[in-house]
Design a protein around this nucleic acid. Structure first.
Length: 942
DNA sequence: GAGTTTGAAACT
DNA sequence: CAGTTTCAAACTC
C-alpha cells in the first residue's frame, strides 16, 4: 500500500475529521449520475440503532443536489480511470488496530474515500476478510463504477450481526476478490443502510492482513482493507482507501454487532464519527465496512455491493470438491498466472480457491484482473482466510485467476499430470500433500506450455480442490504470464481423476505422504536435466508436457514458455518418431485402501501408453522402478523384451498374471517388491504358452497377432500398423487381433482407429473392441497385462453392431485445446458402415456364432462411463459389456490390476464377467500436433 | 549427498 | 534396424 504511485494508501491515523459533506462531491456529475443509475437505497436507521444505539443517523439528504460538474471530482475521476490500467492505486488491507476513526468522509471526494472496516470480536473463528475489487477498463469505468452499488450484507447465520458487502448486481460467485462467508449472505435489508458506503475503485489493491501483508492488484479498484484483530483482539479493521486521495482517512466501523469497535469507541472520533460513516459491514471473522464519505451527513446512502462473502465460498468450494469430479480435460493455457509464489499457492491450496472449474473458461486478464463486469471469466472469486487471502493477493498482484463455478467439473488427473495441462500421469493418483514440495519449490510451480492451450480461451479451469491442493501445490503448475496483454489464464483440468484428488484429500496424512513418495516422482517431480536442455524425453517435465519451473534443477533449460516455439518444435519431432512419446508414462493406483467397492476400484489409473513397446529390462528383472512396467504398476507383456522378468504385477510370461497377494497390496498402495515370487498366478497358460511358443507371439502391444481360435495354432495376423498419425486428412486404421486364449475361447480384438482431419483439427476416434468368444459362452476377463491391444477389453459386439463411440478430440492445436481439449462425444456408431478393413486381411467375422456376446444397449450409459478414465468396469458393475471408445492417440489402454479383476469376478454383475478395457481417457500430455476438429465435426462423426 | 546402476532415449 | 551413446532417474552407500 505504500506504493509510490499511491498518494496515500493507508494512514494509520485518520487525519481528516471534518464532518461536513463535500459539496464538491455532492455536486459532482458523477455522483449525480450515480445516484440516477445506482440502486440507491435510503439508509435504514433501525438497524443502525441496533448497532449504534448512540448514533443517530439521519436520513441522508440527496447527495447530489447540483448537476454542476465539479472540476476537481472530475479530474479525480478521470485520473482514477486512467489508472485502471497502470494503476498505482492500491487496495490495502492492513491491521489498523485502534486508530483514530475520526474521518470526515463527507468532506472528501469519492476518490479519496478511505474506509476502515472494523470487525468486532472474531469469536475465535477465522476472521476472513474479503474484498472484491473490480477492475474495469477505463472506458467502462464510469458505467461500471456507477452501476456498482454496494450493499451491506449480513452474513453468517450464526452471527446475525455479521454483515458483508455484496455487489448489488449479485455478481456471480466467481467474482474476483469476492470472499464469501460460510453462510449465505443476507442482503442488506437487515443492515442499516447508514452503514453502507461504496468503495472507490482504484487501480491497485493492497491488502494487508493482520500480518500487514499487502497485495497489489493492478488495474483494480482501490480499496483498503485492513483485517486483523484489534489490539484487544476483538475486532478487525478494514480500510478502504482511495488511492487517489491525498489525505487518507480511516473510517472505523463498528463490529459485526453494528457496534463501534472498542478501539473506535475509544477513539476520539469513534462513535461521534458514525453520522459520518456511510456504512459498515462486518463479518464474524472479518467485517467489511464501506463508507460513502460523500454521502455522509446525507440522507441518501448509496449502497455499493461488494462481494465480501467469506467463508461461504469456502464451504461451497469444499462441497464442490467433495461432490464434484472434474470433467474438463486438463488444459492449461498460458497466460494465466498461477500463484506466483508459495504464499499464493499455499493460499490456493489451503483456501481451495475456486478457479476455472468446469467448462467455463476463465480468462483473467492481468491488465484487467478484475472485471467490473460480472463477466464469467473476468472475475475471480477468492475465498480465503484473512491470511491466505492476504497473502495471495499480496503476492499475486493480480489475482487474474478466475474461479468459475465448479459445477460438474471433473478433473482428469491423467491429463493434469501427463498431459500438457498438468503433466503428471501417475502422479494423478496421488494428491499432493501439504509438504509435497518444499516451500522453495512451491515458489515456482511448473508451467504449462502455451501451445497446449487453446488460443482463445487459454483457459485453465481449475477445480477448486484441484487447484488448491493438487495443481497448485503438488503439481505446482504455474501459468506464466508471458505478457501483460497475454496473461489471461484459464485452467482446465481433466476430469478423470477428480475423485482421486478428492480421495487423496481425504487420506490421512500418513497415507498422503505415502502416496506422495510413491507417486510424486512419477510425472510431477521436477526434472534435473543437465544436458538435454529439457527438450528431450529424458526430461520428465518435457515428457509430461509441462514447462520446467522453479523446482526443477535443470540446467540450460529450454523447456520454458519463452522457448515455446522451440519446445513445440521439439515436441513435434519427437512425436513424429513416436506418436505416443508424450503419452502418459506411468500409471498409478489411487486407491489407497483395499476398497471393496467399485468406487474404490475405479480409482485405478490405467497404465502407460508411452511405454507401448514394453520394457527392456535386463538386470532389474522388472522388479524396480527402472522397469517402466513395474513403475506403472502393470505386468509385463509379451511385448516386453525384458529378461528374467519378475514383475510383481505380472510377469511377461505370465501374461499379466498377478498374485492375489500382490493385488491386495497394490490396492493398499503397497508397492512392494514381490521379487520373492510366489505369485499366485492366475494363469491362462494356454494362451501364454501359445504365445511364447510361437515366434510371432512376441507381439508388441501395437502389433498384436492374430491367432486362430483353435488352440494355439496361431496364424499370424496381419501386423497392422500401429497407431500413428496419418498424413491423410482422414485415415482409418483397423486392427484385428484374435487370440486363442484357451481351447474353446477366442478373443478378438478389434481396433479401429480413425483419424479425421476436420476443420482445423483432428478427430481421433479409436474403436477398440475386444470380444472374446468362448465356446462356453463365458467371456473371460483380461489379465492385468497392459499391452496396447491386449488390454483392450471392452467386450463389444461384432463390428456390425451399433455401438457407442466416444470421440475424443485431441486438440492438436494447443491453442485450441482449451476449448475442447478433450471432447467426448457419445453416440451410436455403426462400425460396419464406416469401417474399412484397410489393413487387415482378416475381417472379423461374426461367424463366431456360438459366441454369446452381450450386446450393449445403445444407451448413454457408456458415454457416462466414458467421462473419465476410470475403467468402465470399475465404474459400474452393471455397465453393459460393450463399449466402443474413441480416444486420442495417446490414450492409454491398460488392463486393470488383477485384484480388481478378481473382485470383479466375484461380482454377480454380468458386466463384470466381461473382458475389460481400460482406457486412459487422458489427453495426451501434449495435444496432438494437428489441430483438433471442431466439436461439430466430431458430432457429425457420430 | 555423492557415486553407481539402470534402462530409456537418442544417436549413428 | 541394430549397435552405441547419452541421459537422467533410480538406486546404493
Amino acid at each position: 500500500m505504500d506504493s509510490p504511485e499511491t498518494n496515500k494508501i493507508v494512514t494509520s491515523t485518520s487525519t481528516s475529521s471534518s464532518t461536513t459533506s463535500s459539496p464538491v462531491v455532492q455536486e459532482s456529475p458523477f455522483f449525480n449520475y450515480l445516484r440516477t443509475l445506482s440502486p440507491i437505497k435510503p439508509v435504514k436507521a433501525a438497524h443502525v440503532a441496533q448497532g449504534f444505539p448512540e448514533l443517530s443517523i439521519p436520513t441522508p439528504p440527496p447527495v447530489f443536489t447540483s448537476p454542476r460538474l465539479n472540476p476537481q471530482s472530475e479530474t479525480i475521476f478521470l485520473n482514477r480511470s486512467k489508472h485502471f490500467h497502470s494503476s498505482n492505486k492500491k487496495l490495502s488491507i492492513g491491521h489498523e488496530g485502534n486508530r483514530d476513526r475520526g474521518t470526515d468522509i463527507s468532506e472528501r471526494p469519492i476518490s479519496r474515500l478511505t474506509v476502515r472496516l472494523v470487525s468486532c470480536s472474531q469469536k475465535g473463528r477465522d476472521s476472513k476478510c474479503s474484498a472484491q475489487v473490480q477492475p474495469s477498463s477505463p472506458s467502462q469505468f464510469v458505467d461500471e463504477f456507477l452501476a456498482d452499488p454496494v450493499e451491506v450484507v449480513r452474513t453468517n447465520s450464526s452471527d446475525p450481526d455479521v454483515t458483508c458487502l455484496n455487489h448489488v448486481d449479485d455478481t456471480p460467485e466467481v467474482q474476483l476478490g469476492c470472499i464469501r462467508s460460510k453462510e449465505t449472505t443476507v442482503k442488506e435489508n437487515n443492515v442499516n443502510d447508514e452503514l453502507l458506503k461504496y468503495v472507490e475503485n482504484g487501480s491497485d489493491v493492497q491488502i494487508k492482513s493482520s500480518e500487514q501483508t499487502e497485495v497489489d492488484l493492478q488495474g483494480r479498484s482501490v480499496a483498503v482493507f485492513k483485517t486483523g484483530k484489534m489490539e484487544n483482539g476483538e475486532s478487525q479493521s478494514v480500510v478502504y482507501q482511495d488511492l487517489a486521495s491525498e489525505d487518507v482517512n480511516d473510517i472505523n466501523f463498528p463490529n459485526s454487532c453494528i457496534k463501534p469497535v472498542s478501539g473506535a469507541q475509544n477513539s476520539p472520533h469513534g462513535k461521534a464519527r458514525m453520522g459520518e460513516y456511510a456504512g459498515v459491514a462486518s463479518n464474524e471473522s472479518a467485517e467489511t465496512k464501506i463508507v460513502d464519505p460523500e454521502e455522509t451527513g446525507q440522507n441518501q446512502r448509496v449502497l455499493r455491493r461488494r462481494c465480501l462473502q467469506f467463508e461461504a465460498s469456502v464451504a461451497h468450494r469444499k462441497s464442490i470438491f467433495s461432490n464434484q469430479g472434474f470433467s474438463s480435460p486438463a488444459i492449461i493455457s498460458r497466460c494465466s498466472r498461477l500463484p506466483a509464489n508459495s504464499t499464493e499457492m499455499e493460499m490456493l491450496e489451503s483456501s481451495e480457491l475456486d478457479c476455472g472449474i468446469s467448462n467455463n473458461i476463465c480468462t483473467a486478464n492481468s491488465s484487467q484482473p478484475m472485471a467490473s463486469k460480472p463477466s464469467p471469466c473476468a472475475a475471480k472469486t477468492v475465498e480465503t482466510h484473512n491470511d491466505k487471502l492476504n497473502r495471495s493477493v499480496r503476492n499475486g498482484g493480480n489475482p487474474s485467476i478466475k474461479a468459475p463455478l465448479p459445477s460438474g467439473i471433473g478433473l482428469h488427473l491423467n491429463s493434469i499430470v501427463n498431459t500438457a495441462a498438468m503433466g503428471c500421469t501417475a502422479s494423478l493418483s496421488r494428491k499432493p500433500s501439504e509438504n509435497d514440495y518444499p516451500s522453495a519449490q512451491r515458489e515456482k510451480p511448473p508451467s504449462v506450455p502455451n501451445q497446449y492451450l487453446p488460443t482463445e480461451s487459454k483457459s485453465f479451469s481449475v477445480p477448486a480442490s484441484v487447484l488448491g491442493k493438487f495443481s497448485v501445490k503438488r503439481l505446482g503448475y504455474e501459468l506464466e504470464t508471458q505478457s501483460i496483454a497475454d496473461n489471461s489464464a484459464t485452467f482446465q483440468f481433466p476430469n478423470d481423476n477428480a475423485d482421486q484428488i478428492q480421495e487423496f484429500n481425504q487420506l490421512s496424512p500418513q497415507k498422503k505422504r505415502k502416496r506422495t513418495f510413491t507417486n510424486e516422482d512419477e510425472g510431477c517431480k521436477r526434472c534435473n536435466c543437465r544436458r538435454s536442455k529439457c527438450l528431450k524425453l529424458y526430461c520428465e517435465c518435457f515428457a509430461a508436457g509441462i514447462y520446467c519451473a522453479e523446482p526443477c534443477a535443470c540446467q540450460e533449460c529450454f523447456n520454458k514458455p519463452q522457448y515455446e516455439d522451440k519446445v513445440l518444435e521439439t515436441r513435434k519431432q519427437i512425436e513424429s518418431r513416436n506418436p505416443l512419446a508424450f503419452a502418459p508414462k506411468i500409471v498409478r493406483r489411487v486407491t489407497d485402501s483395499p476398497a471393496n467397492s467399485i468406487e474404490e476400484n475405479k480409482k485405478v489409473t490405467p497404465a502407460s501408453a508411452r511405454h507401448k513397446r514394453g520394457c527392456n529390462c535386463k538386470k532389474s528383472m522388472c522388479l524396480k522402478k527402472y522397469c517402466e512396467c513395474y513403475q506403472s504398476g502393470v505386468g509385463c507383456s509379451a511385448g516386453c523384451r525384458c529378461e528374467g522378468c519378475k514383475n510383481a504385477f505380472g510377469i511377461k510370461e505370465g501374461y499379466g498374471e498377478v498374485s492375489e497377494r500382490l493385488s491386495r497390496k497394490v490396492d493398499g498402495e503397497s508397492w512392494e517388491d514381490n521379487s520373492d515370487g510366489k505369485l499366485a498366478m492366475v494363469t491362462r497358460s494356454n494362451f501364454i504358452e501359445q504365445e511364447h511358443c510361437h515366434p510371432h507371439n512376441n507381439l508388441t502391444p501395437l502389433t498384436p497377432s492374430l491367432q486362430y481360435p483353435n488352440q494355439g495354432k496361431d496364424v499370424h495376423t496381419s501386423r497392422l500398423p500401429g497407431r500413428r498419425f496419418l498424413p491423410s486428412p482422414e485415415s482409418e486404421t483397423n486392427h484385428l487381433s484374435l487370440y486363442a486364449k484357451s481351447p474353446g475361447s477366442t478373443r478378438y480384438v478389434f481396433t479401429h482407429e480413425r483419424r479425421s482431419k476436420m476443420g482445423d483439427g483432428n478427430l481421433d476416434i479409436v474403436f477398440d473392441q475386444e470380444v472374446e468368444f468362448s465356446t462356453t459362452g463365458r467371456i473371460d476377463q483380461f489379465s492385468p497385462r497392459w499391452d496396447g491391444f491386449e488390454d483392450i477389453c471392452d467386450l463389444t459386439p461384432l463390428p456390425q453392431t451399433s455401438s457407442k463411440a466416444k470421440a475424443i478430440l485431441s486438440p492438436s492445436n494447443s491453442r485450441d485445446s482449451g476449448k475442447v481439449s478433450q471432447i467426448q462425444l457419445q453416440g451410436s456408431v455403426r462400425l460396419s458402415g464406416s469401417l474399412r478393413w484397410r489393413s487387415s486381411p482378416i475381417t472379423p467375422t461374426p461367424q463366431l456364432g456360438e459366441s454369446k456376446l452381450r450386446q450393449e444397449p445403445d444407451s448413454d450409459v457408456g458415454c457416462a462411463i466414458l467421462e473419465d478414465d476410470t475403467p468402465d468396469i470399475l465404474k459400474d458393475t452393471h455397465t453393459p459389456i460393450k463399449t466402443v471408445k474413441a480416444s486420442s492417440p495417446n490414450q492409454k489402454r491398460v488392463s486393470p490390476p488383477h485384484n480388481h479383476l478378481h473382485n470383479l469376478r466375484s461380482s454377480p454383475s454380468p458386466g463384470l464377467k466381461s473382458g475389460r478395457k481400460f482406457v486412459l481417457q487422458s489427453i495426451s500430455s501434449f495435444p496432438p500436433l494437428t489441430p483438433y476438429s471442431d466439436p461439430k465435426d466430431c458430432s457429425s462423426k457420430k
